[in-house]
Design a protein around this nucleic acid. Structure first.
Ligand SMILES: NC(=O)c1ccc[n+]([C@@H]2O[C@H](COP(=O)([O-])OP(=O)(O)OC[C@H]3O[C@@H](n4cnc5c(N)ncnc54)[C@H](O)[C@@H]3O)[C@@H](O)[C@H]2O)c1
Ligand SMILES: NC(=O)c1ccc[n+]([C@@H]2O[C@H](COP(=O)([O-])OP(=O)(O)OC[C@H]3O[C@@H](n4cnc5c(N)ncnc54)[C@H](O)[C@@H]3O)[C@@H](O)[C@H]2O)c1
Lengths: 251, 251
DNA sequence: TACCGCTTGTGAACGCATGCACAAAGTCGG
DNA sequence: CCGACTTTGTGCATGCGTTCACAAGCGGTA
């Protein structure tokens, strides 16, 4: 939509220019939360809710109310004191800041277990991320449609990514293939990569990589179990009976 | 150096007690990285590498060398100055800190696109996370084995989780079902939950939740694309030629 | 219009995490 | 046995992110 990102302050509206400058200053952590607020707000809008206070929204998003207000303040002052926020207004401003005013075409590479799930998932197109290309090295898969999109051979990746203006590449290949797939995506001009393979990817500075590592997530959970078990042990043994139920006594 | 506050020394060995006390102090961010180091180190061990310096390991893990050393220092001093770290030793210490010395049984709830992929994935059991139970509400799925494990009906979740000592529950149901599934997992004694459904789960304090939200990941990538585009525009037009290549000029 | 109560937006303080820089501590060659 | 070289472990400064607390601002009410 709009935002023909023209030049500096001469042709853009003051509001747009202000947004651009602000975008640079938004903390990474706040960006992630803004995406969550957006989802919650979208849900509210669908339910017919038109206004919301920082307290309500923060509850629904599972964060501290002050943090929520600060996060929203990064994108501008669109609330009304004494009242709250207009849901629609907030949605459109967050969408603008997150760059969701245009679609981002997605390519999935590696159509195995995970690739199939991603290709079949209906949740992305509706949120502005249409999956427009699938790639695999396996000749048996090439040509077969998955989730409505036919699989192409990995060797066609450059041509097809350029043609379909892919802006996000998703890597769902086995670990050994990930770096080479990544390199090919990068040389096809893809600047955003979401990596499911448990390997550290090397990319140029102008490419943004985010990784999803399920084994790491589970290990973090495991750490917390262990920590909790230790704490419980300390309380019951170390404090020698002073601690009742699970409460930690010492500060 | 070693942190007081411990009285646990009476029943545990000093080394164990020291670990337990340290575990409490490890920053969350460092825990996530330790899991990455562990994966890299395991790969090195398999390749026959026996020793590694902080510089090498940090390269392989994609982090700053000083940060890596600090992370490792949280779990103790197991390096040799002038030489580096023994791979095996480091692996075993990280595993101990992360609580990986025992297996953590995993249950997957919601055997749809994503649930199938998870159940079929061979990478978890090898890392100490055997998938031991699958649940779905769909009668057509119940009884059918996926990845070698038969699917059970969701109503059996409490009994089976207790019986198989499930410690991690993975939620891969549609969003509306997620909270109720979560509640059932919690009442079955599961204290760790990995949630793929795009909803904020409410849980008691003694339960740890981690979420994987792919739409949020993509939106973060989208934000960076937009920011980059804006910067490019500012530099080429706003600064009126003063900025060459991608460098940001104004602070 | 003037007041009241409510909610936002933000300055300021705090706490956590990162990265630097270097002393301490070890190896290895001679 | 010594001295040069290498690499760890960490004190310290810096920057980022979170939280508190409250003035400013707005709608409603009399
Ligand atoms: N399935 C899961 O639940 C899961 C969980 C965690 C991590 N992962 C990771 O995600 C990745 C994919 O997992 P999966 O279970 O789907 O694996 P999979 O083996 O089922 O699928 C991998 C696919 O990638 C294709 N492929 C291999 N080399 C390729 C290349 N060079 N170019 C293009 N395609 C290529 C294969 O033909 C295959 O279709 C792996 O790295 C895995 O570690 C998967
Ligand atoms: N598939 C993906 O790639 C993907 C990507 C991002 C997010 N997600 C999220 O992951 C979740 C699962 O996605 P999916 O594509 O596998 O969905 P899906 O519809 O294919 O599968 C959902 C499964 O959950 C089962 N189910 C429904 N209610 C249940 C209940 N109360 N108890 C137990 N099982 C129940 C259904 O029978 C079905 O088998 C969704 O929340 C989705 O938003 C999926």
């Amino acid at each position: 939509m709009v935002s023909q990102r023209g030049e500096g302050e001469t042709t853009t509206t003051p509001a747009e220019a202000a947004d651009k400058e602000r975008a640079r200053a938004i903390p990474e952590a706040a960006v992630a939360r803004l995406a969550v607020y957006l989802r919650v707000l979208s849900g509210m809008a669908e339910s017919g809710v038109t206004a919301v206070s920082s307290e309500e929204l923060s509850q629904a998003a599972g964060v501290n109310a002050a943090k929520l207000r600060k996060d929203l303040s990064y994108i501008g002052s669109y609330g009304t004191r004494g009242v709250g926020y207009d849901v629609e207004v907030l949605v459109s401003h967050i969408e603008r800041i997150l760059g969701l005013t245009r679609n981002h075409s997605v390519a999935v590479v590696g159509i195995g277990n995970l690739g199939h799930a991603l290709a079949n998932y209906g949740g992305f197109p509706g949120r502005g991320f249409p999956v427009t290309a699938l790639f695999d090295v396996d000749a048996d898969l090439v040509g077969i449609p998955v989730g409505g999109i036919p699989v192409n051979h990995i060797d066609e990746i450059t041509a097809i990514c350029l043609e379909r203006e892919v802006s996000i590449g998703v890597i769902a290949t086995p670990p050994p293939a990930a770096q080479s797939v990544c390199d090919r995506l990068v040389s096809a001009g893809v600047q955003c990569i979401l990596n499911f393979a448990p390997v550290v990817l090397q990319v140029p500075d102008n490419v943004e990589v985010r990784k999803v590592d399920l084994a790491v997530e589970m290990q973090i959970l495991s750490f917390h179990v262990a920590r909790r078990a230790d704490e419980a042990a300390s309380v019951s043994v170390g404090n020698n009976g002073l601690g009742v139920d699970g409460m930690v006594i010492r500060p």
